[in-house]
């Protein structure tokens, strides 16, 4: 009981002192998860939109794959990526294993299906009359598509935040392909795992508090966006 209490005291001291090691770990987490999310949006939104707006061949199959991908266990992603990136693997020449780059790829694989699938759903659910309205007002096919996508923006943002939620909290994939190297590939979740293992609870608890805070903020943002999309509060989001 006493060690737990002591751990919390020390943890808060670390946080309040803006401990450099702590900050470095948090900053890398933001870079890795943020980078992965950005990539997931850059590729997932166009794919989701394309499937929603055009009759793609194999659309059903792609949708099934993507929906399956939403539930991929992070450790399996880590394992497969490890095998691909290891020195003797087919992508070994890239020398990415145990780098932040590998961690971004791993988390991208986890976020991509979520962003794609939720963007697709949001765009498919836009009332068909929006498309007609765009057309009768003179939109060309690209403008028409962008208008429908814009109408789905709250759902798309929700999907992106959900993707972020998935990657910030996961440890399985980044610990395998990142290797948890001090000062280089250590992120919040992997550090918690390692330091707990070593019995060094101060840093683990401090990072745990920060991770919980981030999750909380993500959830608050999610709810706020969903509320904005529904309410008739007169808020304008396209000025």
């Amino acid at each position: 009981m006493d060690t737990i209490f002591q751990g919390f005291i020390s943890a808060f001291k670390l946080i309040l002192a803006l401990n450099p090691e702590l900050l470095k770990i948090i900053w890398l987490s933001i870079q890795v998860s943020g980078g992965a999310l950005l990539l997931a949006i850059l590729l997932g939104l166009p794919l989701g939109a394309l499937m929603a707006l055009r009759r793609l061949p194999l659309r059903g199959l792609i949708l099934n794959l993507i929906n399956t991908g939403m539930g991929l266990p992070p450790v399996v992603v880590g394992l497969v990526l490890y095998l691909l990136l290891s020195r003797s693997g087919p992508l070994g020449f890239l020398s990415l294993l145990y780098t932040p780059g590998a961690m971004i790829i791993a988390q991208f694989i986890l976020a991509f299906p979520i962003v794609t699938s939720l963007s697709h759903t949001a765009i498919v659910n836009v009332n068909p009359i929006i498309r007609q309205a765009a057309r009768v007002l003179g939109a060309n096919p690209l403008q028409e598509a962008l208008t429908v996508i814009r109408e789905a923006r709250y759902g798309i943002i929700t999907g992106s935040i959900a993707g972020l939620g998935r990657v910030t909290a996961e440890v399985g994939s980044v610990i395998i392909v990142g290797g948890n190297i001090a000062g280089y590939t250590r992120v919040i979740t992997t550090t918690i795992a390692l330091e707990t293992d070593k019995g060094n609870f101060d840093l683990a608890i401090a990072l745990g508090i920060i991770l919980l805070t981030i999750s909380l903020l993500i959830n608050v943002a999610l709810r706020a966006i969903q509320r904005l999309g529904r309410t008739s509060s007169g808020v304008i989001l396209w000025d």
Partner: peptide, 24 residues
């Protein structure tokens, strides 16, 4: 142009709804 029976109001401001046809 056609005024649809359901109009098809965009989820933007009144101003941007009307500006739409000019902007595109």
């Amino acid at each position: 142009t056609l005024l649809l029976p359901g109009v098809g109001v965009f989820n933007t401001s009144v101003f941007h709804n009307v500006a739409y046809g000019l902007k595109i």
